[in-house]
Design a binder for these strands. Structure first.
Length: 457
RNA sequence: GUGGGUUUAGCUCAGUUGGUUAGAGCGCCGCUCUGUGGCAGCGGAGGCCGGGGGUUCAAGUCCCCUAAUCCACCCCA
């Protein structure tokens, strides 16, 4: 076995590769980003790109010192020398905020909508929909705290998912309140669960210290029983006045727009920087962890990074997870187009000339040529397998008359075309277009095939 | 970090209670095919049987270790 790619990474492959699935198909990634770009730019977001490695401090202060990401999932990269290493970014928001602060983007009209896309890195163990290098689409709005921005962000995220054709999605919406609210809630939870330590699962005993809110969505039956018996009140009950008003306003907008969501009073998010609005988008098809993406408000992040207080909100979608979800819904990409014309010389002496013709035709259409002389049968078979629309055969006879034998593969219609009109013919409508099939065409130059059609659907 | 499944040709897989030079289908390349394709027939290339160690006269097959992969826990996209 030759060398293999590192664990938890994937190659994005060309169409036709064996073992190809949507989430490893290069063109599918392209497609998702293109669709997203359309939606996001129509929403007013501008593209921003940041390095994939950053100072460790950015991630520690952004994502949170005690989060799983920082404590056990960071990739560190070193270069020759004494430097203490960089972090491969585990998510995009901290970097975008860092770039906003560092580059004075504050002077752009505010609030500023940005989007980015690219690889993220987390050194986790691998399972369905979870890779060590995965790809995210990010949308961030910096410089505004109006609830309308929250509602718009959610709506934009839903538009992206919709534009991809996904239908079976569930939006879970909640609010994690302001920091003071969360402190009060955590204190409440510690007090409640503290009285039932004996009945909690071992994992939840750990959660009790680190993040008691996690106990609420534990899968263990014993924990669920405790939660039920204690009739634990949800985070939403603990929202302060302002957070409460903000959340109510966000919901009013979404309700008015007909954006359907499931209220999740106990929604927990894993990154420390979230405030107030928080949401997750789920899909049944992606496996045990069904989140396609999530988002929320992060008004405290800029200050944590050492900048002036700057409100912000954003979301991220996992591209691989979107593709898995698309697979689960049976969505497929249309066939990738083959060359428009495949040229083949029938005689060794003509190979160079034919290649030159191909190079010239590329100003009009996708043109490929054979690298050696082929027999007509082989040339046609080759052209067909490559998915070409036309095959152009040039032998001594054609070369002598200054024409090419141009065959429309799916219809079998063939004509001799003069070199001077070839560009126009290839750039124009297909032979199969009735306007184009010459009614006076000589029978001797057309060879309709017994229709053994295939691919062309 | 933990648990279970898997690993033989480019792909999908056979391979008997351990027994000579490890097979098939598909794909790839070529020929049949002196200027008209997708079919068919024939031929060819392509395997440290994931890696390492052990048991044995003999290991793809049994044992141990290890890696990768898939799924799940944890956590997240």
């Amino acid at each position: 076995m030759a060398l293999q790619r590192p664990k938890g990474t994937s190659d994005h492959l060309p169409d036709g590769s064996p073992k190809l699935s949507l989430d490893t198909q290069a063109r599918a990634f392209q497609r998702v980003t293109d669709v997203a770009r359309g939606v996001l730019e129509r929403s007013g977001a501008q593209f921003i790109a940041t390095p994939i490695f950053e100072e460790p401090e950015l991630v520690r202060r952004g994502v949170g010192e005690t989060s799983d990401i920082v404590t056990k999932e960071m990739f560190t990269v070193y270069y020759f020398g004494e430097h203490g290493g960089f972090i491969l970014r585990p998510e995009g928001t901290a970097s975008v905020m860092r770039a906003y602060l560092q580059n004075g983007l504050k002077q752009l009209p505010s609030p500023l909508k940005l989007w980015t896309q690219g690889p993220m890195f987390r050194a986790e163990n691998v399972q369905k929909g979870r890779l060590r290098q995965f790809h995210q689409l990010d949308y961030e709005v910096i410089g505004g705290d109006d609830p309308l921005i929250d509602a718009e962000a959610v709506a934009v995220m839903m538009s992206v998912v919709e534009a991809l054709g996904l239908r079976q999605v569930t939006l879970k919406l909640g609010s994690v309140g302001d920091p003071a609210d969360r402190e009060r809630y955590n204190a409440y939870l510690r007090e409640q669960f503290g009285r039932r330590r004996a009945d909690l699962s071992p994992e939840s005993l750990l959660r009790l210290d680190r993040n008691p809110m996690r106990i609420l969505d534990s899968k263990s039956a014993e924990d669920q029983a405790v939660v039920r018996e204690l009739a634990v009140r949800p985070m939403l009950d603990f929202l302060g006045e302002q957070a409460q008003a903000h959340f109510a306003s966000v919901r009013r907008y979404l309700d008015a727009w007909g954006v359907s969501y499931q209220l999740d009073p106990g929604l927990v998010r894993g990154l420390d920087y979230y405030r107030r609005s928080a949401w997750e988008l789920h899909h049944a098809g992606v496996g045990a962890k069904s989140a396609l993406g999530g988002g929320g408000r992060y008004d405290g992040l800029a200050e944590q990074l050492g900048g002036p207080a700057t409100p912000g909100i954003g979301w991220a979608l996992g591209i691989e997870r979107l593709l898995i979800a698309m697979t689960a819904e049976g969505l497929e990409l249309p066939l990738s187009p083959g060359p428009h014309v495949y040229l083949a010389a029938l005689d060794g002496a003509l190979v160079g000339q034919v290649a030159e013709l191909g190079l010239q035709l590329r100003s009009v259409v996708r043109a490929e040529f054979a690298y050696r002389a082929l027999k007509p049968a082989v040339a046609l078979r080759d052209a067909g397998r490559r998915g070409a629309v036309y095959a152009a055969l040039i032998g001594p006879e054609e070369a002598g008359r200054g024409v090419v034998a141009l065959k429309h593969l799916s219809s079998g219609v063939q004509r001799n075309i003069g070199l001077d009109e070839l560009r126009d013919v290839l750039g124009g409508p297909d032979f199969v277009n009735p306007d184009f099939v010459n009614p006076d065409a000589d029978d001797r130059t057309t060879h309709p095939q017994p229709s053994t059609n295939q691919e062309q659907a």
